[in-house]
Design a protein around this nucleic acid. Structure first.
Lengths: 211, 211
DNA sequence: TAGATTGTTAATCGATTAACAATC
DNA sequence: TAGATTGTTAATCGATTAACAATC
């Protein structure tokens, strides 16, 4: 069993992409793949591919390459929990709707239990099969259902307060679409940020300076 | 005038965040800020803040700090074009809807001109004030209106073909929500990727291994 | 066995952090 | 002037790439 360096964040961020390509290959009936073939589709080097996998204990066979099915399975085990992680959505506006829909098609690893909003006219409606509840119910709901992950789709003004509340209620992991930065005030919390505004601004910079 | 090292990608990705915080400070009436104060809110070091700004030619005053209004303005000029960049949306499904809405509130730098879809039942409808057109019209539309940026909200199966078409029609910059990787086949194209599936999978990894 | 390709160590590269002279 | 804080160079750190021995 080879060395297992704790994987760094860049390595972890590449895992889903490997997983995706391996899934495609498996579907196409490809049974084995070399680090250099994987590197080409990933847009990286064979060296990096091997380094990456060796963080988790080397799934390959010297002289042969990697077994596509096995590697895909192993990465799947690393990435996804055995049971779907109970998840709630905070903020049922436009973005919240899109994300709820996203969960419906691509639920692997997560199960959306409920949505919450403050707007009275939304409460009681359903969103992709889950009820939209009053934020006032959040505490009792969490006490009963113990969600582990929250998707934050509230405007920035509300985000700080919502975050504080959820953390107090025991939620430790967030898929965060708001512009509030959890990481600075709560370093122990798991947060995956999707900052659409920053992404668009980055594109604007590139267009402005390189087109 | 100080040295202007060409900014690296990590620097560029931090610009919108600086811009955001400086905007907030300006609104609050703060007139000056030091690199260490900025570092604290950004979650980084004073050294990095100064290095970052010096890529663009040092906006500060030794012994004093940075003028909030001026720095905010200068970053704005770097990030956003003088005139909004004409933009089209490809794919008017759930995600497309959310993104069109996003453009309505946060248009700074971009102007959404039109949306395109293949589904006959969607064509002719409007989406946040822009018409949804038939993909068949894409070529003539681009010839007439010369959009510069396309937002890609189509499923992965369609993405490769759509990308090829848009690149042939002269579009050079993409805000890409599909799982197709432009960068490998078209290295000269400007692409800002938002891979929601990968982001969610990364969160799943973290939850699975650190919670 | 010879060829291929991994696992792993070493070298390089780039980004971040530290230090300090310049100067307001 | 003294204190503060930048701009910039130097040191460190970490990630990527190269090299090569191990081995299928």
């Amino acid at each position: 069993m080879p060395t297992q360096n704790k994987p760094s964040l860049p390595v972890i961020k590449r895992l889903p992409k490997y997983y995706r390509y391996l899934g495609e290959m498996e579907k196409e009936g490809v049974t084995k793949v070399s680090s250099s073939e994987l590197a080409r589709v990933m847009g990286t080097t064979a060296s990096q591919v091997r380094q990456d996998f060796n963080c988790f204990g080397g799934f390959g066979q010297q002289g042969i390459g990697y077994n596509v099915k096995l590697l895909h399975e192993e990465l799947g085990k690393l990435i996804f929990a055995r049971h779907p992680v109970p998840t709630i959505l905070i903020g049922a506006g436009n973005l919240g709707h899109a994300m709820a829909n996203y969960f419906r098609q691509d639920t692997q690893g997560f199960e959306l239990l409920a949505a919450f909003d403050v707007k009275p006219e939304m409460i009681g409606l359903t969103l992709c099969g889950v009820a939209i509840r009053d934020m006032a119910e959040l505490e009792s709901y969490c006490a009963e259902h113990k969600p582990k992950v929250a998707v934050i789709c509230v405007p920035r003004e509300a985000a700080k307060q919502v975050a504080q509340k959820l953390i107090d209620l025991g939620i430790r992991a967030f898929w965060n679409f708001s512009h509030y930065d959890f990481s600075i005030e709560y370093p122990d919390i798991i947060v995956e940020n999707v900052h659409l505004g920053d992404s668009l601004a980055t594109l604007s910079y590139e267009v402005n300076n390189n087109l």
